[in-house]
Design a protein around this nucleic acid. Structure first.
Lengths: 220, 220, 220, 220
DNA sequence: TATGAATGAGGTTTCATTCAT
DNA sequence: CATGAATGAAACCTCATTCAT
């Protein structure tokens, strides 16, 4: 949704994308969207408040009406970037009646969207780069996203074991293994796209295949 | 947090017990080591040359005798951080007579060391965070590390297929899947260690297990 | 030595009794005035932006709102120092009905003012000292001041010849000779004033006398 | 004599010109020659000791064996740049038996050489630009060059008056008028050469003509 | 004596933040 | 509420000077 063109340009162009409606909530949204792009482009220290303002279509001073400081903006960015997708998957999982194989397909498709195509993919890279300086932010992310996500993955594994779909508990012990390729995809897009394109969908399909078989999948 | 100087082990420089040796090569090394830590802590833009100098035990101006500018220092950092480990593994693989399963164990052990314990692990995080702003650096890393690494992984898969150890070519098509957990480990150490420790060795073991089985492993 | 602020006389800015007026144009003027003094005192490289700022009564950063860089400030200084005096003389000459002798008197009086008493006299010294490093600036000055000035001098000589007031065309061929003493006066004020005062007005009078007679003056 | 090519280049080329023989006096000379060029190119503050050293063919530290500091080098430069030409002219004048007209020809020829072609011409420009910051240097120059030169010019005028060659004492009162065109020539060469070439010899000839006639010259 | 690596004060410039309008 | 001109701390980098060799 948010405009992401000219991501590599020098100076920020006079704000295309959403132009900050009069509604305070709109403004806040516009600022956060702009901030995501700008922080992603240049990192925390390298990002300029002026660029955020320009891209959000507001004046520099206005930023400070919504966020006390650059740091607060960065934190707000990460905090409000978490997406309902996780909650949706949790609910979907609770109601899902098909096979684990099927559910994994759906899950990976959603996560791939989130981690590779959505502008929120940058949040991961930002955290990777800046997380050490913002421990509470890392904590927050762990609490709100990571631990919940791993919880969901564990639940999936547990149910699959219970149902006899798989035989290994490796996925229960290391749910990270299920989503590791997503991190690779995110990193690859940002860094090596130009050198070699990566077929993300194909990779995730292959991954699902390997993992299920590797966990002892057997059609019930 | 933990201080990481003397990261490169080896013998202590002969002259002047402490203080980064008088030999120019030693100085260069000391500067790069310091830079790695400082850049890792604060990112490229956030790092201060003064901090690098102080940590390296030299004056600010001295940095510029070894590196023309901050950017050159960052680049030098990444360029000289690549380690002989990859070349060693390539040679070892050529001579290795045991099973693929055994070789993967060795490989993962080495890579885990490199990606999780060596101070060079920060290089990966730095690239993830800053790489987009240093395209030639990303190119360099792709050329010297990524493409070679993936080449090795493909060779491993090819030989395993040839020998009939595995039956799936998924690892040949997406060698990234074999090392994806390493990226997770690196990221986890930097961000979520405090919230939940990750048993990297255990995870890699489980990963090897899953992957081999997932690729159709059969003892020959 | 002598303080030269308020060099431009005129009316005091209406708002805020002192302190360089709040009007952007006033600020610009104050900065340029300050820069003239500071650059004149220490040369381009020796001048400190902080000193310019302090003398202009603004913060260091403010300078950069008006001029992109030190160099731009220096250029602005020279460009905006050219004075309407030349245009005025051109017009006056076109309408002047008296003798060339009379007109030269007027001209020298004006130029002496400009080159010896006005703070803009420093511009000449600055150009002399730094001009070689700022070729476009020298070009600009040649175009806007020198060539026009020489043109006026040639016109004066041509008319005098035409009218039979003088008989030599030396002034037509080398109009520089007419203003050479002004350069001497400017240099003298800056350098040797303390050692020996120079009676500029007297010198110019003597110069006019010599030149006219030297060009074959005859009262018509 | 001293090499003056590449006067406008960026970095100083590895010292052509005289290459600093082993004799200390030679070295000193080489350093001063180099300093003249470098200071002339960039002004006092802008000149780099490293550039002087490189051009003189010595190491940076060596400069400090001959001159205590940059400032001392600059002063030495000006002090030792004064040339025997003035003394020679004084002696020649004392012995000269020809007409004042003839002597002026000789004098102007010599001075033109000194002020336009010799590398020492830069000294004048340097003093103009930096003199205000080095009052003792200006004093020195006044004492050693200016006052002596003006003295000679006055003597010339006095003798011409005495002999009845001229009738005006204007040259006696303002001897500066006799050499003003030399300053113009020096300035012109440095600044406007590219825009319009100046025939220095022709101008000086015209100047002599005008001045003599203007002072009431009559062949005796 | 000559060298040039090392030093660190000091300069230019940027940019987060404030505040009068 | 919104603005953007002004501020000044802080960063990068240069270069005069020193001193061990």
């Amino acid at each position: 949704m948010a405009d992401e063109s000219d991501a590599h340009g020098g100076t920020v162009s006079p704000a295309r994308g959403r132009k900050a409606g009069r509604d305070p909530a709109d403004r806040r949204r516009a600022i956060l969207d702009a901030a995501l792009v700008v922080f992603a482009e240049r990192g925390f220290a390298g990002a300029r408040m002026q660029d955020v303002a320009t891209r959000a279509g507001v004046a520099k001073g206005t930023l400070y009406l919504y966020f006390k400081a650059k740091e607060a903006l960065f934190e707000g960015l990460v905090r409000e970037a978490i997406d309902p997708v996780l909650g949706r998957m949790e609910r979907e999982f609770a109601e899902f009646t098909g096979s684990t194989r099927q559910f994994l397909s759906v899950l990976f498709a959603h996560l791939a969207n989130e981690a590779v195509r959505s502008p929120r993919r940058h949040v991961i890279r930002l955290l990777l780069g800046e997380g050490e300086r913002f421990p509470e932010l890392a904590d927050f992310y762990y609490r709100e996203v990571v631990s919940r996500g791993l919880g969901l993955l564990r639940a999936i594994n547990a149910r699959a074991l219970e149902r006899g779909e798989i035989s290994s508990d490796a996925g229960l012990r290391f749910p990270q293994l299920l989503v590791a390729p997503l991190l690779v995809a995110t990193a690859w897009e940002g860094l090596f796209q130009r050198n070699e394109t990566l077929d993300v969908a194909g990779m995730l399909e292959a991954h699902a295949e390997i993992v299920l078989r590797g966990l002892g999948w057997r059609d019930s």
